[in-house]
Amino acid sequence: MKKSVFMGTLAAAGLVATGAMAQDAGSSTLAAVKDHGALKCGVNPGTPGFAAPDASGVWKGFDVDLCRAVAAAIFGDPEKVEYTPLTSAVRFTALSSGEVDMLARNTTWTFSRDVDLKAEFTGVNYYDGQGFMIPKDLGVSSAKELEGATVCIETGTTTELNLADYFRTNGMDYEPVPVESFTEAQNQFLAGACDVYTTDASALAASRASFENPSDYVVLPEIISKEPLGPLVRHGDSEWGDVVRWTLNAMVSAEELGVTSENATEMAAGTDNPEINRLLGVEGELGAMLGLPNEWAFNVITMVGNYGETFEANIGESTPVGLARGLNALWTEGGLIYSPPFR
């Protein structure tokens, strides 16, 4: 008798609970962001030049500017962003659980992340590759001489996988020292707990720039992988993916078309170039198609800047990070940065 009572209750409970299901998981992210009044953006907890809070606690950096650009496109206000610093180990969980709306956190676009992890990469904002940094006094000039070295590595990154592959294919041994964050990796490296620090070359340059004596450290010439870094959103909401994708494209197109934060207002009065007019919302309804105000791209460019401007302001050669454009120059200047047309 007892058992049947129990089973009966279970069945009843099941019916009631299924009936009570109201939560629908597939709702629109754009509407949710607008409702919330701010964009929830996942960023790196601290890579100088890419994402780091400045002395007064304001988030600054190349990746942060992407968050600000999306906020500017949606709200016409780049400050409407709530930043969530995420370590590499928790970033995807945070994204897929809805804790953040987008990730702008030097994340490498790979097949398995795109397909299996159910993330949607919405472009590449920095073409990077993995490199090695080592103290100069160890006298190593090539990554091939790293047999038996101790290597600091952030767990849960593509660099961890590349490292394993690189040493295996070259028949070398190494000892991994797994660390949880970029800052922790720097501390361990400076304390000498590892001989080598490996991560994306851009981050190596950024971290070397922040050292007390940058000239005591060298970045080895080998680049052992392709690391296309870009923003990503959850799989399954293409409208939201389009907003992030075309915000980045707008910044790139603006640079290509010579629209800058200074001359955008002037150009918004109307130009001879129809593509600039469409981009700035003078002609056509591109904004409305995205579910955004028509001057969305204008806001992005005036409030945040075009791709080249944010690059130079955060990580360009005049900054302490001092990265050359290299692969990240416009396609017209021999780089890989390219935007589909605004049409």
């Binding site: 180990a89 995807f92 969980t93 767990t155």
Partner: peptide, 12 residues
């Protein structure tokens, strides 16, 4: 750190 860290992170 293995199952609940790197493996979880790499496989999603």
């Amino acid at each position: 750190a293995t199952l609940g860290g790197t493996t979880m992170n790499n496989t999603g």
